[in-house]
Design a protein around this nucleic acid. Structure first.
Lengths: 197, 197
DNA sequence: ACCTGAACACCGTTCAAGT
DNA sequence: ACCTGAACACCGTTCAAGT
């Protein structure tokens, strides 16, 4: 049974948060679990597969509890939902050391971390945009959130001293950047020209 | 004299393009140069420093020849120049295997690849945007170009077979995504409402 | 100044063999 | 089914010693 997989992933999250992504090695994780590194290959085909599972776990933990059942249509306007998904994604990655680097890498290589993209696509499906443009918009939003949060976390972790005054600047920068992308999208989903005044 | 540094970087670009970023190791590069790996540490303090130099070389080679002297104000409207810088950045990274991964990583860690950011900031300085927003806009554009091109190059290199039909789809997707971000920026730099008609 | 030789402290992955 | 033991083919980096 794949019954120990969750335990291995949970330990891997601990190692990630404590020592960083560079020190999350198969040998170190094995040592932490009291097991030879080769034993891990009975549960995961490769290190990349393991990292994908860790990225998905980080995202799952950062997911706000939804009071609506899974197959209910989410409430709120499509753009409010886009902001919610992007904000949640950023916060999920910031919650663990090197979280942004891990999730962005796993996503870039197509191994996992696909949930935020699905959520964004679902929200944009209600925007009235044609499917091709909605796909472009989804990817553009993801690139923004990944890129911004990677920068933010790198700078945050670089100087633990100056982190106190960097945090608010970056926080508003996230909102401002997201606003830029979102307005560009909004401009394309009105069939009629925007109302003047 | 640092007279061999350019030779080392040139060889490193060859190794990158032939074998990929994962195989661009100090040991392999040393072997390619007929030298022990430890000899490289007389020219570069670390592998990261070397990679930064390689990234800057890739960007320099992709730079279109400018017929204007360095300290001349570039011609064209600010947004045309933004499109030019982003297009050139994408093409420079696509010109070498794993170019996007290399340049994006070096930039994220703040080790190099700073020229495109400077060029974008210079263009946006003429947009009438206030400096803080211009900084946000610069970073948002960079995140888009890095993220898009990383995706594009990964998919391009994954299937060499289907690359023929993927290329045009991605090419127009780049223009479309850039258009979204650029329109969001334009919306913020008009003090007066846009002229109707 | 530039490079060698040799070492240090690691990696991911495979696989026969044990239980 | 799950893990050990041992190996294979590598890493980045340091540093005394050579020329």
């Amino acid at each position: 049974m794949s019954y120990r997989r969750p335990d291995i992933v949970a330990r891997a999250v601990e190692v990630l948060d404590t020592y960083g992504l560079a020190d999350l090695t198969m040998r170190r994780l094995g040592g932490e679990l009291g097991v030879r590194p080769s034993a891990l290959y009975h549960h995961f085909a490769s290190k990349q597969t393991l990292l994908a599972a860790v990225a998905d776990e980080v995202l799952a933990r950062g997911r706000a509890p939804r009071d609506t059942p899974p197959d209910t249509v989410p409430d709120g306007s499509w753009d409010d939902r886009v902001v919610a998904v992007c904000t949640e994604l950023r916060e999920a990655m910031l919650a663990y050391r090197d979280g942004a680097e891990l999730v962005a890498t796993v996503h870039a290589f197509g191994l996992g971390a696909a949930a935020p993209g699905r959520d964004l696509a679902a929200a944009l499906a209600d925007s009235g945009l044609d499917p091709a443009l909605a796909g472009t918009a989804t990817r553009t939003l993801l690139h923004f959130v990944f890129g911004h949060t990677l920068d933010e976390q790198t700078h945050l972790q670089a100087g633990s001293a100056g982190a106190i005054e960097d945090q608010p600047r970056e926080r508003s920068d996230f909102a401002a950047g997201l606003g830029i992308v979102l307005d560009g999208i909004r401009l394309r989903c009105r069939v009629a020209p925007p109302p003047r005044g």
